[in-house]
Amino acid sequence: MNNGGAGRRNTLPGFGLTMGLTLTWLSVIILIPLAGLFLKSFELSLDQFWSILTSRRTLNALKISFGLAFAAAIVNLVMGLIIVWALVRYRFPGRRIFDAIVDIPFALPTAVAGVALTALFAEKGWLGAPLAELGIKVAFTPAGIFVAMIFIGIPFVVRTVQPVLIDLDAEIEDAAASLGANRWNTVSRVILPSLVPALLTGFALAFARAVGEYGSVIFIAGNLPNVSEIAPLLIVIRLSEFRYADATAIAVVMLVASFLLIFAVNRLQRWAQTRMPAH
């Protein structure tokens, strides 16, 4: 009816077609499968759900995954900041190579990282042997899980904080100095506060990744129930035992947790933008 009259909207063609294809593809690959998971979990009564989650083994697996991921993310936060500082602020031989190296945990397949870390930290490994002499055992203990989680999390902090530190206006440092601040004051009162949103975002991303991590962890973990068994592995074990309900319940809890984390990250980024609008 309106063909050729007023009220048509888009100048560029193809919106209807491309949006339709996008929504279809998104639904088929992502939304329907994820909805299926939630649908499956509704087949469980609340009691069943609760007893699965509060069983000793599930609870311990969740504790190990979330607890160690949190600890690893803290280490990543501190080390990430140090690495970013060195890469952005200082010039040293091999700086560009080290800058590129930060991405290796992103690029290296997790299974490869898993076997490599295990070989490195095993009792006869390059690092495992000297550590064993000190009485420290890493591989096949919770410490191994911790190490693997640090490995996969480090790029998240570095890559979120790095651009912010680069963009930080050098004039504000001069301003602080001209107002009589010494270097420590300038760093702690002017620079670090501007990095807080990026640091928290990087922390949350590293944490979320470590909680769900599977490939790089299971080789080095030892996988002892209640001691060094992570939640994703427990899902896989329950699946192989055909205990779909158990697998679904654990998965739903983890999924909700990661959605909350992503939500938090989005809020953080919005906060950072309103607090410090891009110049």
């Binding site: 007023a6 009220g7 048509r8 909207r9 100048t11 063609p13």
Partner: peptide
């Protein structure tokens, strides 16, 4: 030019309805 579309009204070129055509 046909790069935007009015909510109401007419545009014609030499008496021919231009809104019937895209840019």
């Amino acid at each position: 030019a046909g790069l935007d579309w009015p909510d109401a009204g007419e545009v014609s070129f030499d008496g021919e309805n231009a809104l019937a055509h895209g840019a």
